[in-house]
Design a protein around this nucleic acid. Sequence first.
DNA 1: TTGTACGCGTTATCAT
DNA 2: ATGATAACGCGTACAA
Lengths: 351, 351
Amino acid sequence: MAEQDRSSSSAKRAAKPTINDVARLAGVSKKTVSRVINRSALLNSETRERVERVIDELGYVPNPQARALALRRNFLIGLIHDNPNAQTVLNVQQGILEALQGTEFELVVRPVDRRSPLMLEDVRAFLSRQRLFGVMLLPPISENDVLAALCDELGCRYVRMGSAELDDPDHLVASNDREAVREATTYLVDQGHRLIGLIEGPRGFRSASERRAGFEQAIEAAGIELPRNFIAEGNYTFESGIQAANRLLDLAPAPTAIFASNDEMAAGVVHAANQRGLSVPENLSVIGFDDTAIAAHIWPPLTTVRWPIIPMARSAALKLVGNPAERKGASEPSLFLSSLVRRASVAPPRG
Amino acid sequence: MAEQDRSSSSAKRAAKPTINDVARLAGVSKKTVSRVINRSALLNSETRERVERVIDELGYVPNPQARALALRRNFLIGLIHDNPNAQTVLNVQQGILEALQGTEFELVVRPVDRRSPLMLEDVRAFLSRQRLFGVMLLPPISENDVLAALCDELGCRYVRMGSAELDDPDHLVASNDREAVREATTYLVDQGHRLIGLIEGPRGFRSASERRAGFEQAIEAAGIELPRNFIAEGNYTFESGIQAANRLLDLAPAPTAIFASNDEMAAGVVHAANQRGLSVPENLSVIGFDDTAIAAHIWPPLTTVRWPIIPMARSAALKLVGNPAERKGASEPSLFLSSLVRRASVAPPRG
DNA sequence: TTGTACGCGTTATCAT
DNA sequence: ATGATAACGCGTACAA
């Protein structure tokens, strides 16, 4: 009787109840409680209910640290990324957190440097030490097959986010960048543009090559012959967008429209145009990619490709932890469609 | 002898070495190894060196899960925030991660809803379940004293980030928003503006009241008498900036300059001006606050107040985990100065 | 279907 | 200064 003090059902609970408390009060062994927690199939439903009642009364919650030790697995989801743009990382976080909401999982953020020769060893140390439940890989490192293999080797589930089909559906959430850019470029053509410049992303990024491929397909389909130097390379930053735009605008004839492979670079294009006294879209049409906040906030508002990044990240996280509503999360979609958002940065070319 | 198989010093280590392996090979008890790990003072330096050598040979790393269980404390730093703007959260993360780089700590992100009546209970559950080493509190929830008291109660260290002195130096990293805004406003006055509008932040935000106070001090010091309706309220979003700007610009006489309490709203002001056919800075000068990416990316580039957020976050994290280079992290600064970044969005008013 | 005994890898207690 | 032994809270053989 005296022992019951520890488990008063009132609000006071300085020492949190353990599985032993539950077992004792329910009159079962702690293994049985453990079975209830882990939803073992072989369980008398009457016993289960009794245990569950005690759990509720006590407000018992399993100790994650003890579970992690015994299971050799933490209930943490890792977000491994190498600094794609800020807004992307944040949107991904939001999507993941939405999916993890109400679960026992927490999100751990882990930036890495893809150019460091130690990157793989870093990740290996991180994964094997923290024994994460699973990780999400963002572009561009999501395109690294060795990294994915490493996750497998270490028994860590993973889902990659990407702009093309890089893996099987269980390990992938992708958008179809190529198709989206083709649509965007075709829109420019339909407006009457024939001199269309491309600012592509950095070499080695799958998103860069996919977007370029979409651009070229549209150009070819329109029967347009473009000079080689109408394609300039950027590195997805605002500054690189300015520079690439200046290279393009120095050409004669210069493009009357530019597709930039992301919004930051597109903002750079608008910036460069303004510096030159060109106004958008009267003298130059611009399209970006991502539909990040900046697209809607600059002047004029930017026509851009909207990438459903938050739903994608949510879906990816559900793949990782298993959607409780579904069978095992396998039913989460893997392919997401992007769409063109038409705003004010595009107009027909002048005369 | 046969047991030595487990601890070959070669690269192969499928099963990671444990403290027991180290103890056995070093010929000491595991408690002694534990003492080495935790830098206990009472240790024969000869023993320590021997143990350390074995640790290096084996590539032994303590298991965080077991440590967490035994210590009743996880080596995790939590970032608790209620969606201030995206860029802020990300910058804070960057600063924290810089500080945590190379340590045993990981960063766990935890968004909360400050308006939910369950917010405190959420945080309580989170902290007591995960047993975090410490947490960082971002504005505006960092201004909640009850929340800070809750951390204390649960034995969780905390550091608050804020725009004024909310706590003692051990628990605070703050910028001096009031002074910075006073300087910014004075700059407007010095340029010749007398009709200066303010778009303040949302009610209940300390940053909002601090910035307003700075604005009013400068106006008063300049001997300017401003109509009441020259102060409009926003909620730190782009949209609210547009709306507040339109209210201000509808006035007669209308302001020739507007100080917006953050960059997003300032971008909204520029947007609204463009919509009305006013050009910045010829017809309207604008100053923002934060120096987020958007400030430099819109046209014209925005004069704004730079808040050293990354160093602040880094410093806060070091306060939490203790700067290894310093005594105990107590020497990290608590007050940071903001500075005015002059770009192209301010000019003298038109005669 | 349920319970017993032990392991997970570390730290803490209290000896020596 | 160091070691034996017991926590920490949960999961898993294997037995019942």
